[in-house]
Design a protein around this nucleic acid. Sequence first.
DNA 1: ATGCTTCATGAGTACGATTCATGGCATGGA
DNA 2: TCCATGCCATGAATCGTACTCATGAAGCAT
Lengths: 307, 307
Amino acid sequence: MSTIHGMDPLLDLPQLRTFYTLAQVGSFTACARRLGRTQSAVSHAMAKLEDLTGVPLLDRRGRGLRLTEEGRRLYQACEQAFATLDAAAEDLKRHQTQARGRLRVGATVEFGSSILMRHMQPFLAANPDLEIDFTLSHDLVGPLLRDDLDLVIDCVDHPLPALKKSPLFRETYVVACAPAFRKAHRLRVPADLSRCPVLSLDKGGAWWNRFLVAVPDRDQPHLDRFIAVNHVRAMIHAAVEGMGALLAPRYAVLEELERGDLVALFPAIRPAEDRFSIYQKKVKAGQEKQRLLTRYLQSLSPEEFGS
Amino acid sequence: MSTIHGMDPLLDLPQLRTFYTLAQVGSFTACARRLGRTQSAVSHAMAKLEDLTGVPLLDRRGRGLRLTEEGRRLYQACEQAFATLDAAAEDLKRHQTQARGRLRVGATVEFGSSILMRHMQPFLAANPDLEIDFTLSHDLVGPLLRDDLDLVIDCVDHPLPALKKSPLFRETYVVACAPAFRKAHRLRVPADLSRCPVLSLDKGGAWWNRFLVAVPDRDQPHLDRFIAVNHVRAMIHAAVEGMGALLAPRYAVLEELERGDLVALFPAIRPAEDRFSIYQKKVKAGQEKQRLLTRYLQSLSPEEFGS
DNA sequence: ATGCTTCATGAGTACGATTCATGGCATGGA
DNA sequence: TCCATGCCATGAATCGTACTCATGAAGCAT
């Protein structure tokens, strides 16, 4: 009755996907985690959707939210619509041209050896004629510019005009230590880290800067007992053994936190995060093999990057 | 095979609606018009979609674009998905609470008397318990602030913090005249308007500024023979009779242009456009009757506003 | 009460979608 | 052949909006 073309822009929004996910998982926070957004984003999105439609869709009373009657109907529509769309997407994937030839990929040591390796198998299987080799190093841009690498995944920003940058994900860091260690050193606030052994990837302790910048001035600890370990995995083991406090990418210590081998310290303080991006030379970014890998990596859900 | 949750963000984009519309109308320009965007926007959107999927969806060879095989399949998926979503939207509309009480709407004379009136009937029918009255005037903000009006549709910008502004549509203007008039005055470039009778809504000729600002300096005409007519409809009739050149909102002269009673002049020059917005007092914007009308107006497709 | 979740909200920001201003490439008259 | 004209592509600039950040309020435990 309202629009001439029977086309209603109302329900054609990213909000809908959020609503759909939210209905599935039943919690704003969980939904946010799965979509790689903040809880606030989900809340805003739902507020907007309800405002747009003019109908309450969520029943927020009490614990564990439920859908209203209208919400349930909308959910069913989403279920159907997204199913067909996702099927279409899947279908399109099959028609992508396969990549051939050789692709030389570079990545940081920590990221490459863990997350990247864990997720490359499906891509390799889908492109049997593609030869990939990996170079894990801290110097990535040099080889990229010298054409020793075709594509690089790095977390330091390279604002070079010759490079194409595609954002990939954000890496968050946590401070943690063994439970016994926390007790022994009575760690309650950041300042308690003073005169307490801390594990660092470098000898100077610059590694801890990404944490220190997030600490308010009054609570600044004076770190002076650094234990340098130039390998993340080794550093984690050291922390588990109670050798010192640890600052590490969250994804790297998920299991240890889960098992209780490590406990997170000062959850209120969020260290600076790294933004991982894919870098390629602009002139080569158009090549099929490069685009395929870029798309594949970007299609990985944020959860898979441990954020 | 790729994403863990079977949720592929690829096809969850506004781009899709564009693609769907494009496939229906078969032309970038027409699609843009229908969606109220520029041709460029549609082009960008399709480029991005094809890049994202990695599959060519459009066949641009030759005249009149066609879909590729993959494009056709995607189109069918869209057809189905959007159908269920739009049905759901329609369903939600029925559950919107009806508005009651009285709503005093203000609008500019030209807009209110034509477009607005032509589109209010469905809204009135859907809200039988709502009494609406219209005030068409050029002074709208005053009454709005004095609470003589509840909601106002205006094209001049009011950056008042107490007012909530919701963008509605853009009004484009055209310069036109009767075919015979063009011949008689040999109108080919804007400068030819010098010493040629021009119709103006005001006596000073300020009406023509929105055209003059769009004309490059070298081609500036010296308008000096103004015929003032303080009513748009009358002005159009005058133009049809060959009394002078006309500057008018495009929507107002659509029929005349269609029938050939008027011809558009200098299509390359695009006069400054008016941006119509809905203004309401923030404190009252939350009321159901106001929100309903706002949503209704915004749901009207851009085509219906003649742009 | 105190803490611990979970969601809401307002202000500020960053990114992506859109526009603007072009340029290329076809087609159809003169 | 030559210019008009219509259609789409493209790069840079701009604008809006969906996000984050930093809170606050409300439910449920202890």
